[in-house]
């Protein structure tokens, strides 16, 4: 086993993959925490799927699909956020519509593109094993940007997540900050797409934060713990997929999902125990 691990680490792709897993986990831990406490998992899912439109456009026009994904994710995210805040329509319906339209645009563009679409599947299901060195650099930069946003605007982001009405009365630019947050989600989504694919993005964004939220009692700790958990899940999932020859993205998600269910069970057992000891004292 140990030799096998050492042997695997000789490969560039394996080292890159492990590093990519850790890098996306940092962004997921920070952004996912805000997604979970603000209850905007659905918007995040919408952003991920709408990004597919940009991938299709990139193929069709012949530029890097990741750039297309970023453009579509950011504009879809901002669009959804504005719809959610400003209109009296049912926000979730409109988000669902944008989700589907973005995805459909991507599919049509890819239909229209001639030739062999080699790594199309990698956007749907992720391809952590083929992350090139340049992408690692992009991930580092995105991590720095997201970390800086969280650090510089922490007091306001906490306030608008906890009680936006009070924050408004204290002159906090609530809407602007919310758009900034959605922008950060969009960037994270595109980055995570490389690792687990757009279909599974929400899972890696929310599960580590959801687990952390059950055990820690303040937002900073929640970000830290969910980043660590994310790194553990991606690394574990990656090794499992390597040894058992499974799809890496799905394996990572199943590891996270198993941990989430386990944490729910543990929490309930703990609660019952706590309740009983309290009752029979």
């Amino acid at each position: 086993m140990f030799e096998a691990i050492v042997e695997a680490l000789q490969f560039d792709f394996m080292r890159h993959a492990l590093l990519a897993g850790v890098l996306v986990s940092v962004a997921c831990g920070i952004v996912g925490t805000f997604v979970v406490v603000n209850r905007i998992v659905f918007i995040s899912g919408g952003i991920a799927h709408a990004a597919y439109g940009g991938i299709g456009l990139g193929y069709f026009m012949g530029f890097n699909p990741v750039l297309g994904a970023i453009a579509f994710a950011v504009s879809a995210g901002l669009g959804m956020a504005i719809v959610e805040r400003k209109t009296s329509e049912r926000a979730d319906t409109i988000i669902g519509v944008m989700w589907a339209i973005g995805m459909a645009i991507g599919i049509i563009f890819i239909d229209l593109t001639k030739g062999y679409k080699a790594d199309l599947m990698s956007y749907l299901f992720g391809s952590i094993l083929t992350v090139p060195k340049e992408d690692l650099l992009i991930m580092v930069v995105l991590d720095l940007i997201i970390g800086a946003i969280a650090l510089l605007f922490y007091k306001e982001l906490l306030a608008i997540s906890f009680d936006p009405v009070f924050a408004t009365t204290r002159m906090v630019p609530v809407n602007g900050l919310y758009l900034l947050l959605v922008g950060a989600i969009a960037l994270t989504v595109v980055m995570v797409m490389r690792v687990v694919g757009l279909i599974l993005v929400i899972a890696l964004l929310t599960m580590p934060a959801a687990i952390a939220g059950q055990f820690v009692k303040d937002l900073k700790q929640m970000m830290l713990l969910s980043s660590i958990l994310g790194a553990v899940f991606t690394t574990t999932g990656l090794w499992l997929s390597y040894f058992f020859n499974l799809t890496s993205g799905a394996t990572i998600i199943l590891v996270a999902g198993f941990a989430y269910l386990l944490s729910l069970a543990l929490k309930n057992i703990f609660k019952r125990y706590h309740f009983n000891s309290f009752r029979f004292q």
């Binding site: 406490v37 906490l158 906890f162 204290r170 939220g213 009692k217 303040d218 937002l219 700790q221």
Partner: peptide, 10 residues
């Protein structure tokens, strides 16, 4: 996840 002092700081 928020502590009392953080709420008051808002």
């Amino acid at each position: 996840p928020v502590r009392v002092a953080e709420v008051v700081k808002m």
